[in-house]
C-alpha cells in the first residue's frame, strides 16, 4: 500500500508527539496503525518481533521503575525506557525510511514548497545514520585487532586516546564519503537553485485520506474533541 510522503510525514509527527508527550494509550493507537501499514508492506515478522519485545519490556518497566535500587536501577530503567517508549518511535521511522524513496521524499518536500537548501541536508542526514554506524563498527573491529578497546590498559591510562583512535579515522572516512557524495549529487544535476523534475508520481489517494483522518482523529481525541462532545455542546 503506497502512501504519499506528506502523509508519512504527518504520521511521523503525530506518532512522535503521542509517544513522547501523550498517555500510553495514544502511543499504542499510533503503533497499531503503523504495524498495520507494515503488515501491508509484508513485514509481518518484524511486527511480531517488535510486539514480543515491546510487551515484554512493558511488563517489567513499571515493576523496575518502582524499585529504588540506585544507579543500576536508573540504567536498567533507562534501557527499558529505550525499548518501551522510544522503540515505537523507531518503528514509525523504520516504516517511513524503508518505504520512502529519496526521489519521492524530495518531490513531496518540493510540493510543500520547502527550499532545497533544507531538503538536501535533511535527506543526507536521514540516509546517513546507517552508514555512520557501519563505519563506526568497522573502525571498532580494526581497532580491536590492534588491541585498542574501550576498557583496555592503554585507553584507561590515557582516556583521550580513545577519542583519537576511534574518532579521527571516523572523521577522515566521513569526510571522504561527503566529498564523493557531493560529486555524485552535482553529477546528477541536483542544485539548490533550480527546480527539480521528478519521474515518481505522488498524490493523495484513498489510503492517504484514511491515514490522514486517523491521525487527525487521534489528535482530536487527545484534545478532548470527540463527536459525542460536539453533539452534546450543539444540543439543547
Amino acid at each position: 500500500m503506497k502512501l504519499d510522503p506528506r502523509t508519512k510525514l504527518l504520521l511521523t509527527l503525530v506518532a512522535n508527539g503521542m509517544i513522547f508527550t501523550a498517555p500510553l494509550a495514544y502511543s499504542i493507537l499510533m503503533v497499531l496503525a503503523t504495524s498495520i501499514l507494515l503488515i501491508f508492506e509484508g513485514k509481518w515478522r518484524f511486527v511480531c518481533a517488535f510486539f514480543f519485545v515491546y510487551l515484554g519490556a512493558g511488563v517489567f518497566f513499571d515493576a523496575v521503575k518502582s524499585l529504588d535500587i540506585g544507579t543500576s536501577g536508573t540504567i536498567i530503567v533507562a534501557s527499558l525506557f529505550l525499548i518501551y517508549r522510544i522503540m515505537p518511535g523507531c518503528v514509525v521511522l523504520y516504516y517511513v525510511m524503508t518505504t520512502t524513496k529519496v526521489n519521492e521524499f524530495m518531490a513531496g518536500m518540493s510540493r510543500m514548497h520547502v527550499p532545497n537548501k533544507v531538503t538536501i541536508p535533511l535527506i543526507v542526514m536521514i540516509r546517513f545514520f546507517p552508514t555512520l554506524f557501519d563505519e563506526a563498527r568497522d573502525i571498532g573491529h580494526a581497532m580491536q585487532m590492534r588491541g585498542i578497546r574501550l576498557f583496555s590498559l592503554r585507553t584507561l591510562t590515557n582516556p583521550f586516546s580513545i577519542l583519537e583512535y576511534r574518532l579521527v579515522p571516523l572523521l577522515v572516512s566521513l569526510t571522504k564519503i561527503a566529498d564523493e557524495l557531493s560529486i555524485a549529487v552535482v553529477t546528477r544535476g541536483l542544485s539548490p537553485e533550480t527546480r527539480r523534475t521528478c519521474i515518481a508520481t505522488i498524490g493523495f489517494r484513498v489510503q492517504d485520506v484514511i491515514v490522514f483522518v486517523y491521525c487527525l482523529a487521534v489528535v482530536a481525541l487527545l484534545c478532548g474533541i470527540t463527536p459525542f462532545s460536539v453533539i452534546l455542546e450543539d444540543g439543547p
Binding site: 537548501k117 538536501i120 541536508p121 535533511l122 535527506i123 543526507v124 542526514m125 546517513f128 545514520f129 555512520l132 554506524f133 571516523l170 572523521l171 566521513l174 564519503i177 561527503a178 566529498d179 557524495l181 557531493s182 549529487v185 552535482v186 541536483l190 542544485s191 539548490p192 537553485e193
Partner: peptide, 21 residues
C-alpha cells in the same frame, strides 16, 4: 559556485548526523 553550495549542504547533513549521535 552552486557546486560548493551543494558540497556545503551535504557536509551539513553528514556532520549533523554525526553531531546527533
Amino acid at each position: 559556485s552552486s557546486n560548493t553550495l551543494v558540497r556545503d549542504l551535504v557536509n551539513v547533513g553528514i556532520f549533523a548526523a554525526l553531531y546527533v549521535v
